[in-house]
Design a protein around this nucleic acid. Structure first.
Length: 268
DNA sequence: AAGGATCACAACCGCAACAAG
DNA sequence: GCTTGTTGCGGTTGTGATCCT
């Protein structure tokens, strides 16, 4: 925390509350062109009167590419319910199984939609016919059926015994799923380079991207061309991977981008 | 039409974990 | 091993929108 006079003044000037479109654009442009090696310096460098924490949250929950902005589907709702029954309020973990959804979004959805319904006795919840009983919930099945194919992913042997014992929920030999999918941005051809250090080419002008409503991809491609040493992890995981190269993170997710799965079809 | 109640979602806060010095 | 700074997570609050009386 800034202790200097100027630092205190900066703190005093820090804005709170809802983000304006201008602030969003500043943050988006800055991160797409520079990344976020250190969140505390992002607002300063980006010219924002916010603290780094606020910038990070805004990026993760709203600006980050690959986020879904549509309503949570019945399948996603089922996954939330299922994993919540086994994981509890581990929103970030649940979010790993819902590509394009943030922990905050899931948490809010739980509190506003699911909590009351879930707490109701079964006799009162006849309207939710898609739900299965708690004992029948199997996250592995749900995820593989509705969200993702596990094929091609390396096995990880990271689940704790306690997790395994819980209706085989977390499939002891099953893969961990990356928390973010770039289905809107990347085709499978983008993944042919094992290092993912390639720079996507920019075909056409920004107006072409604007026409298809995909300006973000233009900025991303532009950034990758100008920062060829950047990896996908730098953008997806940020400084965590810069600090912990190829180190398994807290949740057992290896930052190696070979684990990052892209699937356009499953997101539609 | 007015205003109170409720809902939905964005954002903040505090804490714990972690890494670096 | 300790201190400090940063990040990530979960709980909570604030606010605008919508519904209801």
């Amino acid at each position: 925390m800034a202790k200097t006079k100027s630092g205190e003044m900066l703190k005093e000037r820090q804005r709170k509350g809802f983000w304006s479109p201008e602030e969003d654009e500043k943050l988006r442009r800055f991160i797409l062109s520079h990344g976020h090696s250190c969140w505390t310096t992002v607002p300063i460098k980006a010219g924002l009167q916010r603290n780094g924490k606020s910038c990070r949250l805004r990026w993760i929950n709203y600006l980050r590419p690959g986020l879904k902005r549509d309503m949570i589907s019945a399948e996603e709702e089922e996954i939330i319910l299922t994993f919540h029954s086994s994981l509890g309020n581990k929103w970030s973990k649940i979010a790993q199984y819902l590509p394009g959804r943030t922990d905050n979004e899931i948490k809010n959805y739980w509190h506003s939609h699911l909590k009351k319904r879930w707490l109701k006795p079964p006799s009162m919840s006849s309207s939710s016919e898609s739900r299965v009983s708690c004992g029948e919930r199997n996250p592995q099945t749900l995820v593989s059926n509705h969200v993702i194919s596990f094929q091609g992913l390396p096995d990880k042997t990271s689940s704790s015994p306690s997790e395994e014992s819980n209706n085989n929920y977390l499939c002891s030999s099953g893969p961990e799923i990356p928390r973010l999918f770039f289905s809107e941005w990347f085709s499978s051809s983008d993944l042919t380079d094992s290092n993912h250090n390639h720079a996507p080419s920019i075909e056409g002008t920004i107006s072409d991207y604007q026409e298809s409503g995909d300006v973000d991809r233009f900025h991303y491609n532009n950034m990758m061309m100008n920062n060829s040493n950047w990896t996908l992890e730098d953008i997806v995981f940020g400084s965590k991977c810069q600090k912990q190269e190829h180190k398994v993170d807290r949740e057992g997710l290896d930052c190696n981008s070979s684990d990052i799965l892209f699937s356009s079809s499953i997101m539609m």
